[in-house]
Write a protein that binds this DNA or RNA. Structure first.
Length: 424
RNA sequence: GGAGAGGUGGCGGAGUGGUCGAUCGCGUCGGUCUCGAAAACCGAAGUAGGUGCAAGCCUACCGUGGGUUCGAAUCCCACCCUCUCCGCCA
């Protein structure tokens, strides 16, 4: 959501900012709506003030026992307020609808470009391993181990689901537990368990609605399955006014994520790279505007540490204008090297949303020593996607014999297991 | 699922048709007093929107949305949420 006053102050800058995302100019249209809205407000408020005054006179007349005068005054009341309210509601709704579908203004650091081609690789950590054999993809490894079952999942639920068994199921659990513990014990995040089903207002707050409902699963009673824990974590401050000294708020959760993948038919159909359901550790920060840029760097480093400690090869990518998501001012993707696929694949995405979500949620704070309130800044990042981390571990630490070495950091979480061996 | 009670400012809690943005208490902030503190006393203080150079003025907000009325925190309807009891259940 945008600040209409900022747009009013500099409409050309607003249009220029949207142009970076390849969107047409809208400022003059919005300003027309805004003017109509403000005129309607003035008219309605004037009518209300007149009505209130008349009400006071009627009350005074009745109190004085002047019933005839009161009747006379009642007869003279007109209904112009009602007409004005209808006009106001119409124009207000039109403006809100228009504003709600416009993406966030990009940070100045974000490189121009229409798509991922223009993304900028900022940092590479670790070398893609050399293999003395042709590394296999994760689903080949998992199926050969007899611990990853796509046909079985399809029987239960259809495409884009996976059953993990035995050591692989344990590995998924170990990854999630270890990551969450790392962020809570070492990085200052507070663990949360949150609803996986949320209402319309919550989805609107973080920007999934009204525009991206088709990416979500809807329940029969009108709720939505969360596509990421960003949604419930971030909305925990909705409609709150926080003390500045309560900031930053750092929250973490390990949850399943549900995505309809409506637009990705035919993409990544093999394996568990793109599923309707996957586990993810999510990090969310709520900060002052002054602190959000530094918090974004910090959060990204927290996610990077996960990959480093697992011994994976990864790189940090600054997304270009065209690739940056709807609610973000700036996004870093972390990509991990998948030897089986011979490709870098996204495993984390860390975004600073500025005040965009805060305005939608009405999440504010009281600046210390100052009058009034300000919108907070919100950030979210995966720390990291558990399913994809599992894939990366399998492909990176596979051996020629089909076994997979467990990264040392995970072994305590695996009951000491050092290697997952294929069936004899 | 059934029956009942209730949702008012940071908290507690009045207020059942008229000048109520709302009595009062607690808490908070400022001051007086004090060597300092406590107590006591005095005072201040919601959020958002519109308008104005400004001082200010105006409007809205008593769970949410409708309705009745000249006028709604108060009456009516729907919904949401909380609590109690019963039933069911992990």
């Amino acid at each position: 959501m945008h600040d209409i006053r900022a747009l009013r102050a500099d409409p050309a800058a607003f249009d220029a900012a949207l142009a970076r995302r390849g969107l047409p100019q809208v400022a003059s249209e919005l300003l027309d709506l805004d003017l109509a809205r403000r005129n309607a407000i003035s008219a309605v408020e004037a009518a209300r003030a007149a009505k209130k005054q008349k009400g006071r006179e009627i009350a005074a007349a009745k109190a004085a026992g002047q019933h005839e005068k009161a009747e006379f005054l009642i007869a003279a009341v007109d209904a112009q307020e009602r007409v004005g309210v209808e006009e106001l509601n119409a124009v207000e709704e039109a403006l809100q609808k228009r504003l709600a579908t416009l993406p966030n203004i990009l940070d100045g650091d974000v490189p121009d470009g229409a798509d991922e081609q223009a993304n900028v690789v900022q940092h590479v950590h670790g070398m893609p391993r050399d293999f003395a054999f042709a590394p296999r993809q994760h689903f080949e490894i998992g199926e050969a181990l007899g611990l990853m079952d796509f046909a079985g999942a399809a029987k239960l639920a259809g495409a884009r689901f996976t059953i993990l068994r035995g050591a692989l199921a344990r590995l998924e659990r170990a990854l999630g537990q270890w990551m969450l513990t790392l962020h809570t014990e070492d990085h200052g995040y507070t663990e949360q368990t949150v609803p996986y089903l949320v209402n319309d207002a919550t989805m609107y707050g973080t920007g999934q609605l009204p525009k991206f409902g088709e990416d979500l699963f809807r329940t029969t009673d009108g709720r939505w399955l969360i596509p990421t824990a960003e949604v419930p974590l971030t909305n925990s401050v909705a409609r709150e006014i926080l003390d500045e000294k309560a900031l930053p708020i750092r929250l973490a959760a390990l949850t399943p994520c549900f995505r309809s993948e409506a637009g990705s038919a035919g993409r990544d159909t093999r394996g568990m790279l793109r599923q309707h359901q996957f586990m993810k550790v999510e990090l969310v920060s709520v900060t002052t505007p002054a602190d959000s840029a530094a918090e974004h760097e910090r959060m990204t480093r927290c996610a990077e540490r996960v990959l480093t400690e697992l011994g994976l090869a990864w790189r940090r990518v600054l997304l270009s204008a065209g690739d940056t998501g709807f609610g973000a001012t700036k996004t870093y993707d972390l990509e991990v090297w998948l030897p089986g696929q011979q490709a870098w694949r996204e495993i984390s995405s860390c975004s600073n949303c500025g005040a965009f979500q805060a305005r939608r949620m009405d999440a504010r704070f009281r600046p210390a020593g100052a009058k009034g309130t300000e919108f907070v800044h919100t950030l979210n990042g995966s720390g990291v996607a558990v399913g994809r981390a599992l894939i990366a571990v399998l492909e990176t630490f596979q051996a020629a014999d089909g076994s997979v070495e467990i990264p040392p950091i995970l072994r305590p979480w695996m009951g000491g297991l050092a290697r997952i061996a294929p069936p004899a």
